[in-house]
Design a protein around this nucleic acid. Structure first.
Lengths: 208, 208
DNA sequence: GAGTGTGAAAACATTCACAGCT
DNA sequence: AGCTGTGAATGTTTTCACACTC
């Protein structure tokens, strides 16, 4: 049923959704040109991307904002909402636990886990931090779809392995380590220091 | 002088550098096959990427680890180190301020800024949070190269504008807003909720 | 024999430019 | 007249496969 959308397009769909939210509520329609200026991509790209979702626009007129929003949310699977857990409650993990953007888009954080006995039983963002040993039971109980890894690099792979063993479908990995994908899981890596290193490449070289 | 490396390759260079660090110190050489298994990319890709840096390997032998590391650090401009500042010291901003990965790769955080009077003058990660009004002076004083934006979406653009006005060369933007690039600045966006949304697309659709 | 470096092919992504609909 | 949807052109990235060197 699901007609395949190219990966590069999928990556931009959330962006369009977010840009639609920034639009004034007075307007009911938007053109590819307008969306393209908000999202900072070529307007032909916008039209091509949206065309993968079906025939949504009206020639000579543009796209109906509400319809487009709904369609994007359906396509991205945001309608139902998904449960997530965070493993590793250091600085980054607890910042993520408190990040409103997740909940706003329907991603509820239902569990926090750590190996540090000093952290276990304390609370962050209204959740009690539990031992990583409880992950498996909780994943089943709460039907967790996405696991967020915010552990140090050296524990990332074993964390991923146990998440996969629990039947988790997707992993968002913040640890600076390239996970091996046992099984058929979707993994996205966000490596903060790598982002800075890429920027560094494009910085003017220091004077000789 | 700088021969152009394709953007897709540049994005992988920090990954290779990180994988080299994971290698046992006993070995002095590494093959593209070995690197490819650590970085989880095709081995032809590794060889192609590294070939952009010059002729670094030895046929039949592999790459000298130390030489390769040095070359990558030079190419990425990590040798000298760069000063950064963080604007917006909420949960995410303060997690970033405390993130060791930045300092380890030579990115020193030299300033934290916020608009909230309750935060100003308090300390995070050994730094006093200052008013955003002090950004301009500090940027010049400390020769800041990279600005990290961790403000709410609604303040992201004005923050970017003032960073650009201060002569900052690159921006790492964590606010869920697509910045308009006034001037000739390099911008990278990291949108946490968008990452989850992309994963959501690939999740099994909820049963009907 | 082992493993790099790279032409050439294939796959993928972006952009142009315009026919076609409202 | 205005703006979408999309063939066709162009550009970029990945992968294959092998000549070449150590």
């Amino acid at each position: 049923m699901k007609n395949k959308i190219p990966p590069a397009s999928v990556e931009r769909l959330p962006l369009y959704l977010s840009c639609l939210g920034d639009l004034s509520a007075e307007k009911s329609r938007v053109s590819s040109e307008k969306l393209s200026s908000l999202a900072k991509v070529n307007s032909a790209q916008v039209r091509r991307d949206l065309s993968y979702l079906g025939t949504l626009g009206t020639r000579g007129v543009g796209y109906e904002i509400t319809t487009l929003k709904n369609r994007l949310e359906i396509e991205l699977g945001l309608v139902k909402g998904w449960n997530t857990i965070i493993v590793g409650v250091g600085n980054l993990g607890s910042a993520l636990a408190q990040y409103d953007g997740f909940r706003e888009k329907g991603f509820g954080v239902v569990g926090l886990y750590d190996v540090d006995p000093k952290k276990i039983s304390s609370q962050v963002a209204g959740l009690v931090i539990k031992s990583t040993e409880e992950i498996e039971e909780d994943c089943k109980k709460y039907k967790v779809a996405i696991g967020i890894i915010a552990t140090p690099a050296e524990f990332a792979q074993e964390t991923a392995n146990s998440l996969i063993a629990c039947g988790i479908q997707s992993i968002l990995n913040f640890a600076p380590f390239r996970l091996q994908n046992i099984g058929n899981v979707n993994i996205r890596n966000v490596d903060l220091s790598q982002e800075l290193q890429v920027l560094s490449y494009y910085l003017d070289s220091p004077p000789v």
